[in-house]
Design a protein around this nucleic acid. Structure first.
Lengths: 109, 109
DNA sequence: TTACTCTATCGTAATATTGCGATGTATTAA
DNA sequence: TTAATACATCGCAATATTACGATAGAGTAA
């Protein structure tokens, strides 16, 4: 079963996996792109841009917030969603670390 | 339900999501790191390195192969698993594209 | 106050993922 | 031939994810 034996892997591996989850669904990629482009920092706009129900978008936002890659500051009557810069940078660094361990052009097979 | 409305998103978004899935589980991160380090190109070695049953490792390898980020060439009595260089490079480019759309230091909130 | 807007959360259903034992298949070794 | 090895696949169970309608809560506008 989908047991997350998180203690069986390194902290780096677990964190990479968690950050990768943020990008592992096209809707979340779309959300992150919209926020990164800074054209829409408000959830209402996001719902308009996405082919998903409001409840579904809210759920994705919640998951992205749990991972930490976005943050939502309350500014009634809206919630301003933004990229969380430190975590975004962490993702860039970690993905870079993993992807750069392999240098293209040196296959063994 | 987990419907993958793949036609509702751009090709780029769908591909990013698929490639991210390759990294969205610590065991797969570990597998990819082992292959990228090139110290183990054979499934038997991989099973020894991972805290998972042989069937489970094989399943992860199958999924990684489906995504395309690794390839398995038969070399009886073993199967040689390796990073698939073009796709690895594609992942690097796509993640870079997405992650670089946001420049740290310009938050709106 | 009431009505309206915006977003979160609940409840539910469908599907996907993860994990492993058991079994199958192919090759090698004896 | 039989036995052993290496890996894939099957079948099942447990859990996670995705999606959405309905509802709740908080604020604004009238």
């Amino acid at each position: 079963m989908g047991l997350a034996k998180t203690d069986l892997f390194t902290n780096q591996q677990n964190r990479v996996a968690e950050l990768a989850k943020a990008f592992a669904h096209p809707a979340r990629v779309a959300i992150l792109q919209l926020l990164a482009d800074r054209k829409a920092c408000v959830c209402g706009d996001l719902v308009d841009e996405l082919p998903l129900a409001q409840a579904t978008v809210s759920q994705h936002l919640k998951e992205l917030k749990r991972i930490g890659i976005i943050k939502g500051d309350i500014d009634p009557p809206r919630v301003c969603y933004c990229i969380n810069e430190p975590v975004w940078d962490e993702a860039r660094q970690l993905f870079g670390q993993v992807l750069d361990t392999f240098m293209v052009g040196q296959g063994c097979c």
